[in-house]
């Protein structure tokens, strides 16, 4: 292992330890888990979607909502705590490059979100599996075709969610490298998440012919600068197989997520190199 990689991993390790000890992480994790578990109780409010879909949507919603909040707020907090407490001064005075510092922060935060996604998707998978067993038995008695859920689809969905949150972390780190305050970073990071979730509108428009060259150029630029976060929300199709997703499409989305991460992280390190601490 190269010394540079070792230093990066040490930063990641300490970042991870710091993050998992935060009450904020535990709080959101508990909230997300409670949301997943409570979906079984709330299914009485369902209007015939199929119970598994209702439970899945509750879980996906929890993962999306709390995952997004966690990746924006926690990443910004982890970055600014180092700057405000002057820990960054101590670390960056050592033979540690700013790229190693920022990439280490990224992997530490991403690992924390990995724990979050694994725990919530594991819980959701467990709840759905248990309910599926009951529904299959009931459907067999009634002579109906039961709705089933796909465990491999759940795994793929969890992986895509993790990648989506990774993209969000890189965006927040890039903003942090530029920003002077925690609040500014959280606000801009949150807006970037919303814009990323709605980027598909421009993406869809780009795929259709447009009369105005200026409008076309604007749309093209929007789709190139903003990440498409909506493409990761294919939980329904993956887990419940309502419409099905080709394997190649999942791989393409995953690669797209990785491409965004590399791009934003590169920009983040460029910006951070010029920052005065």
């Amino acid at each position: 292992m190269t010394p540079s990689l070792q230093r990066t991993l040490w930063i990641s390790r300490v970042t991870f330890l710091e993050a998992v000890r935060q009450r904020f992480f535990a709080f959101l994790m508990v909230l997300g888990a409670a949301m997943v578990l409570s979906s079984v109780s709330f299914r009485v409010f369902d209007f015939g979607h199929g119970e598994l879909k209702f439970i899945a949507d509750f879980g996906f919603g929890g993962m999306f909502l709390f995952g997004s909040v966690l990746s924006v707020v926690m990443t910004a907090q982890l970055f600014f705590s180092e700057i405000d407490n002057k820990t960054a001064l101590t670390l960056l005075a050592k033979p540690l490059s700013r790229s190693e510092f920022l990439i280490g922060k990224f992997f530490g935060a991403w690992a924390v979100l990995g724990v979050f996604v694994v725990v919530l998707s594991g819980l959701l998978g467990g709840v759905m599996w248990a309910r599926e067993q009951e529904l299959v038995a009931m459907a067999e008695q009634a002579g109906k075709v039961p709705v089933t859920f796909s465990a491999s689809g759940m795994f793929q969905f969890a992986l895509l969610q993790w990648l989506r949150l990774g993209v969000v972390i890189t965006i927040v780190l890039t903003v942090s490298a530029l920003a002077r305050t925690f609040l500014f970073t959280v606000v801009v990071g949150s807006l970037a998440v919303v814009a990323g979730q709605l980027q598909w509108i421009a993406q869809d428009a780009v795929l259709k012919p447009t009369g105005s060259a200026l409008y076309g150029a604007f749309l093209w630029l929007s789709t190139r600068l903003l990440p498409n976060l909506q493409q990761f929300n294919i939980g329904d199709a993956l887990v419940l197989g309502a419409t099905g997703v080709p394997g190649e499409a999942v791989v393409e989305v995953a690669l797209s997520g990785l491409a965004y991460m590399v791009a934003y992280l590169f920009i983040g390190t460029l910006v951070f190199r010029r920052r005065e601490i």
Binding site: K86, L89, T90, K94
Partner: peptide
């Protein structure tokens, strides 16, 4: 990196991760 590897630094009012 060469210069910093031969330098030690203690900042004013240092703060370190409390859990370590």
């Amino acid at each position: 990196a060469e210069a910093r590897s031969r330098t030690g630094f203690l900042p004013e009012a240092p703060y370190f991760h409390k859990f370590l």
